[in-house]
C-alpha cells in the first residue's frame, strides 16, 4: 500500500528550479532513504512533503488524501511527524516540558506521565529532564527532537539528516532505533548523507540530482549503478 505519493512536483524559487517534476512513492511500512549530493533538492522535497513550502506545481497525497494545500499542522494531525535538519526544539524550556508539549495533544493523565518517562529513558535523557533544552549538547538536542517527533505516534516519520552532529556510536544507535520503530509498523522517510547509516537502515533508496529523480530502487541496485556510485556517492565511500 502506498502511504505517500508525490506526483509531478516542482518547486521554483525565482529563477532557480530546486525540484523539477518529481514522482516519488513511499510504501507503508518501509524505510525509504532520500540521498544525493548537496544542492540536489533533497531538503526542498522534504519541506514540500511536510508543507513548509507550497509546490509550484504537482500534487502530494498522504494515505490517498490530497494534502497539497494543507498547512503543516494539518498534515501532522493526519499522521506525519517531522524531525528537521537543524535541531528544532524549545530551547528556553526544560527537556521534560518539550516532551510534554509534544505528548499532550495525544495522551493525558497517568498515561502521559508513563510515556514521558519511557521516551526520556529511550533517548538517554532521563537524567536531563530538568535541564533547559538549549543547554543540551547538539547530539542530545537531535535525540530530543526525535523523541518529540515520536511522541506523536506517527504513521510516517520524516527525518531530515537525523544523525548530523552525532558520534559514530550515537549514529549506529539511531540506526538501530529506526529499525525498531520500523519493526513496530512505522514508515520512515529519511534524508541522509552518511552512506554507512543509509546502508544500516535503508530498504529502498531514491537518488536525487539537480532537482530530479536520478535513480531509485533497492540499496544494492543503487550501489551497483556505476554512474550513481562514481558521480554522486563517491566510489571510495561505496566500496568497502
Amino acid at each position: 500500500m502506498t502511504l505517500v505519493e508525490v506526483k509531478g512536483v516542482s518547486k521554483r524559487f525565482g529563477g532557480l528550479t530546486a525540484v523539477s517534476g518529481v514522482d516519488l512513492t513511499v510504501d507503508a511500512g518501509e524505510v525509504h532513504c532520500l540521498i544525493g549530493p548537496n544542492g540536489a533538492g533533497k531538503s526542498t522535497l522534504f519541506k514540500l512533503i511536510v508543507g513548509l513550502y507550497p509546490p509550484t506545481q504537482g500534487q502530494i497525497l498522504f494515505d490517498s488524501v490530497d494534502i497539497t494545500q494543507q498547512r503543516p499542522f494539518a498534515r501532522v494531525q493526519r499522521g506525519m511527524s517531522i524531525k528537521m535538519q537543524a535541531p528544532s526544539v524549545f530551547r528556553e524550556l526544560p527537556v521534560r516540558q518539550n516532551i510534554q508539549i509534544a505528548l499532550q495533544g495525544h495522551v493525558s493523565g497517568a498515561e502521559r506521565d508513563r510515556e514521558e518517562e519511557r521516551l526520556l529513558t529511550l533517548l538517554n535523557l532521563a537524567t536531563e529532564g530538568e535541564k533547559l533544552a538549549g543547554a543540551l549538547s547538539h547530539g542530545q538536542q537531535q535525540w530530543l527532537e526525535i523523541g518529540m517527533a515520536l511522541a506523536l505516534r506517527p504513521q510516517l516519520l520524516l527525518l531530515d539528516e537525523p544523525t548530523a552532529g552525532m558520534s559514530p556510536e550515537e549514529t549506529f544507535r539511531t540506526g538501530e532505533l529506526i529499525k525498531t520503530f520500523n519493526t513496530g509498523g512505522m514508515t520512515l522517510l529519511v534524508v541522509e548523507h552518511d552512506m554507512a547509516f543509509v546502508r544500516q537502515i535503508a530498504q529502498r533508496v531514491t537518488v536525487l540530482h539537480l532537482g530530479k529523480i536520478f535513480a531509485h530502487g533497492s540499496l544494492e541496485a543503487i550501489l551497483q549503478d556505476e554512474k550513481v556510485a562514481e558521480i554522486y556517492l563517491g566510489k571510495t565511500h561505496v566500496h568497502h
Binding site: 511536510v50 513548509l52 498547512r71 503543516p72 499542522f73 494539518a74 501532522v76 494531525q77 511527524s81 517531522i82 528537521m84 528544532s88 526544539v89 524549545f90 530551547r91 528556553e92 524550556l93 508539549i101 509534544a102 495533544g105 518529540m148 506523536l152
Partner: peptide, 15 residues
C-alpha cells in the same frame, strides 16, 4: 511553545 519556536509548535500538530 509558540513563542519559543512557532515552526516546531506547528510541526507538533498545533495550529
Amino acid at each position: 511553545a509558540t513563542r519559543e519556536n512557532p515552526q516546531r509548535a506547528e510541526m507538533l500538530g498545533y495550529d
